[in-house]
Amino acid sequence: MQRRRFTLGITAAALSAGPAPTSHRIGISDVERLQRRFADVVASDHRHGGQLGIEKQAAALADAALAMQEAGGATQRVRGYLYGCAAAFRSSAMWAAIDGQRFDAAQTHMREAQALAEMAGDQALKFRIWSHTGTMYRHMGRPAQALAANDVARGLSITRRDPMFASLGLARQVAICGATGDQAGARRAYDEAQRAMDRADPHEYRPMWLLAFYDQAELDSLAQSAYMALGNFERAEFHAFRSLAGLRPHMRRSRAITTSRLARAQLEQGAAEQATRTAMSVSTDAAVQHPRVALMLREFGNRLDTIAPDTDAAGTWSEYAHTTWGPAA
């Protein structure tokens, strides 16, 4: 069972929490049913990201996992798995709230997820939650707390056992260094993250949530974020192209975010027409429905009006924005 945790396939019909089982004995099959639903939540996040519906679904599934604890007898091992499922769902609710800029909700999910992960005794989940916490504080503009939370994640024993976890912790440190203005630290953390990734055994067992998103493309995306914050737009553009070249097809949310940042990096280097074409290549669904993407594109438009007003690029973007968001844009 340990080798199979969080690796089961996705079933499209399993989108709601549903009632707790009526059996008085909770077993591995009940845990596996929850794990399949967790896989579906992760897949939805990579397709859409930041949606309130994903957050609510994940929170409801966390409650369903806890309800199973009260529904009947279970072995200690099964109870540990149930707490792990609940923690995983809460961490996904937390991430959806972070991605949607709903930080009060994210902090509530964070506290619950941390407590559940402790009860589960799952190092990988603890890493996920503390790493998400660092990202949350970074997006909230609190880089000192972001660094402290990410240090907790990086200090867990799983980062010493598996270089891929070490690499992810360092990759997120790259972005935090960008937020603190530490260019040398960002460069050093990126190099260390790259070396750790290169050392990682590709055949090692890892949880599904990690396999679903962390790779070279994600490392370069976090580097792009860092260099954008540092104002090194040429370097940000370099990492953006590397990331986009390696993104897997299911990473739709990541593609929209990276492309939006790329447009801004090109604009800041004076390539207004190219930047506008790049910004307009972001999928309309992401531009309208994903809070972070919509914000970045609106900021792009404001910056375009400042840098290149009364140009063909500005006119093209104004028409696009009117069509996409309406007159208020």
Rank of each mutant, 00 (worst) to 15 (best):
T276L: 03
F233K: 09
V78T: 11
I307L: 12
D201C: 08
F241D: 15
R248S: 06
A117T: 08
R47I: 03
H24C: 14
D99N: 09
G231E: 07
L210D: 05
Q173T: 09
K126L: 11
G246H: 01
L15M: 15
R128Y: 11
A329H: 02
A166K: 09
E118H: 14
T306E: 11
Q57S: 07
P19L: 14
A279V: 02
M110Q: 13
A153F: 00
A328D: 14
F89K: 09
M251H: 07
G185A: 07
R47Y: 12
I257M: 10
G53K: 11
A71H: 00
R187S: 07
D122G: 09
A240Q: 02
R37G: 12
D99I: 03
Y137C: 04
A106W: 01
A65C: 08
A321E: 09
D220I: 06
P207T: 03
I10V: 15
S44M: 14
G155S: 01
V31P: 08
K126G: 13
D310R: 15
V174A: 00
A179P: 00
Q194H: 13
H290C: 04
A59M: 08
L262C: 09
R142D: 15
Y190K: 04
A71S: 08
R25D: 15
S23Y: 14
L8C: 10
R160S: 08
G53Q: 08
L170K: 06
D191G: 10
A71M: 02
T75C: 04
R248Q: 12
N302L: 14
G270Q: 00
V152G: 03
L210Q: 03
A245R: 14
I257N: 02
C177Y: 10
L82T: 04
D305C: 12
R264S: 15
T276G: 10
